[in-house]
Simulated scan of single mutants.
Amino acid sequence: MRRSTYLVAVGSNRVGRHGRPRGEVAAALRLLGGRASPIIASAPLGPSTRTFANAAVLIESDEAPAELLKRLKRIERAFGRRTGRRWGARVIDLDIILWSGGRIATPTLTVPHRAFRTRSFVLAPALAIAPAWRDPVTGRSVRQLHTRLTARRPAPRSREHCWGP
């Protein structure tokens, strides 16, 4: 396998052995190495009520995507992540978002990540470290995807008519 670059999203919303969620994310970023974004706070997704700490990291690796996924799952387990509820609290969450090799779809891994285009907590950190990286599906850059997601849109015009008193 030739050397690849990966964009990995890192998130936490539960206290673990490295402290509060921000500490868990910082510890994961140190372990992964590479070029990391700033850590941001974001609202929970789904039924969780705990605020998330999120970041992204660019890593270089000789691992194939499936091998990197296995390594990321081992790191999650080492941090104390438990499997269970899909949207539940988690000590650490590590997701492969983009890969310099383009696309891959297997029963256990889809890259680009299916939902990354609609998640500002992924796009905002990614924008800080990989603004020009193009989504192989849409052809849009991370910057363009983030702008599309966060752009203010005008309120719809009302079709009601005022006929007076």
Rank of each mutant, 00 (worst) to 15 (best):
A78E: 15
S12E: 05
A27P: 08
V8T: 08
R86Y: 13
A78G: 15
I129P: 04
R81M: 06
G164R: 13
I75G: 03
T106Q: 07
R14L: 15
A64Y: 02
A56N: 03
I96V: 14
V142A: 02
R90P: 04
G33I: 12
D62G: 11
C162A: 11
G33D: 09
I129W: 09
S158N: 08
R22W: 01
P165V: 04
R17C: 02
R143I: 00
A27H: 12
W163C: 13
R20P: 04
R103D: 01
L31I: 10
T150R: 13
S42E: 03
H146D: 03
P47Y: 07
R159P: 04
P136A: 05
A27I: 05
R157L: 15
R81Y: 06
V91Y: 09
A124E: 15
A155D: 04
G23P: 12
R2D: 05
G84S: 05
S120A: 15
A115W: 00
D93L: 12
R71S: 09
A43F: 08
N54D: 07
L94S: 09
R140C: 06
R35L: 11
R35C: 10
A41R: 14
G80K: 08
S141F: 01
S100F: 02
W87F: 14
R20M: 06
P112E: 08
S42D: 13
T5P: 00
T118C: 00
G11D: 10
D135I: 04
G84W: 07
G88A: 15
G33C: 07
Q144K: 11
E24W: 01
R86G: 04
R143D: 03
R153D: 06
I96P: 02
V10C: 13
V91I: 15
L98W: 09
A41C: 03
K70N: 12
S4K: 02
I92A: 05
L68W: 12
T106D: 06
P131C: 06
H146R: 14
F121D: 09
A130E: 02
R30Y: 00
A89M: 07
S48R: 14
A41Q: 14
R140Y: 02
L109W: 10
L69Q: 09
I129G: 10
V137I: 15
P21D: 04
R30F: 00
T108S: 14
T5S: 14
E60D: 14
P125C: 09
G46P: 00
R148A: 15
S120M: 01
W99H: 09
P47A: 03
W163Q: 04
I39K: 05
P47W: 05
S158Y: 05
K70M: 04
T118K: 14
I104S: 01
S4R: 10
